[in-house]
Design a protein around this nucleic acid. Structure first.
Lengths: 172, 172
DNA sequence: GTCGAAAATTTCGACGTCGAAATATTAGGC
DNA sequence: GCCTAATATTTCGACGTCGAAATTTTCGAC
């Protein structure tokens, strides 16, 4: 009884916990549970969006990391792996496929030959410039439920959390 | 130059974009990028924590869903699949392994025999009761960087976002 | 200058998830 | 009461990621 009328899925979960274990303080779930669910839902929505353009989210992620580094759009494999938060093994696989698609080049760093440099091809630059515009429109749409003031409130709170979790700029 | 001194990784990414493409409004990234990164970092931290107890995050997730449903700690396979936001195929696999561990039972619903009911065993109940206490302590620790007032601000903002993304209680 | 440790990437094997097809069960139309 | 469609779960094949081992290159100690 007295089910929260306007609640989300996390409200329902916390109510269940309080019914079964009123002795526990479940308040951290109200934050962490929501972050986790929101991220999952956004991931799905982004995947659907990119599918319209024949790309996977990870493809745009790699291309965008290269593009935003600026001309000559070159980043080492290790930095790409860190930026994407995936293992170096996963990154090798991703680059293989982007090379096959003709969107990036792979070459050895002339001065430090154990490093591998990845660069956007001209086709990769064009593809990224096209994708990023639609991607931002889509992100804007996904945040449509938040008023501008709400977004403004959200940003510093999430920044504080990220910093406390150890998130730092790549090039400190 | 003029790198944000106290920024997180997302600040750095947005600065890169503005340097390369000042014509684009990247403000949605400030929210969505942070949600995505925070979720990834929290996922890793939870995984590390649960590893101390010899369990994977998904194991706790299934056990907790059963436990918070209350006695007799029984939920259908389909509901577990929805709650965990994974495919029914993935859930079959997860239940197989929890059955092998002796933490849950699998039985056919007597009245609707195409449904499969999953229940916590006594060992499963004890394991969950032990895990949830440590899990909440850990979540509390992970949110340590946020002041209580900041958490309080965060919750309704994330709820609004979740609802606008379509998140709803399972038993509407 | 050489040897061993450190660094960067790739290869390898194992694992977990997904979408689609298959299987089993229930509900409705007539 | 059949036959079809809908529902719920499992099976199957393919794919992507991970951790660890292997490979190549660089750096420092001596």
């Amino acid at each position: 009884m007295a089910a929260t009328p306007q609640g989300d899925g996390v409200d329902a979960i916390i109510e269940q916990w309080q019914r079964v274990r009123p002795d526990l303080d479940c308040s951290p779930m109200a934050v962490i549970g929501r972050l986790s669910r929101a991220s999952r839902l956004l991931e799905r929505a982004l995947k659907e969006h990119f599918a319209q353009y024949g790309v996977e989210p990870w493809e745009f992620d790699v291309l965008a990391t290269l593009y935003r580094s600026g001309p000559p759009y070159t980043v080492s494999a290790g930095e790409l792996s860190t930026a994407a938060m995936v293992s170096s093994a996963a990154l090798t696989n991703r680059i293989d496929r982007l090379v096959d698609k003709g969107l990036v080049d792979r070459e050895l760093d002339a001065t430090h030959r154990r490093r591998v440099l990845i660069s956007l091809t001209d086709a990769g630059i064009r593809a990224t410039e096209d994708l990023v515009v639609h991607h931002l429109e889509n992100e804007e749409r996904l945040l449509g439920g938040l008023a501008p003031a709400e977004r403004t409130q959200l940003v510093p709170l999430l920044r504080t959390l990220l910093i406390s979790l150890g998130d730092r700029p790549q090039t400190g």
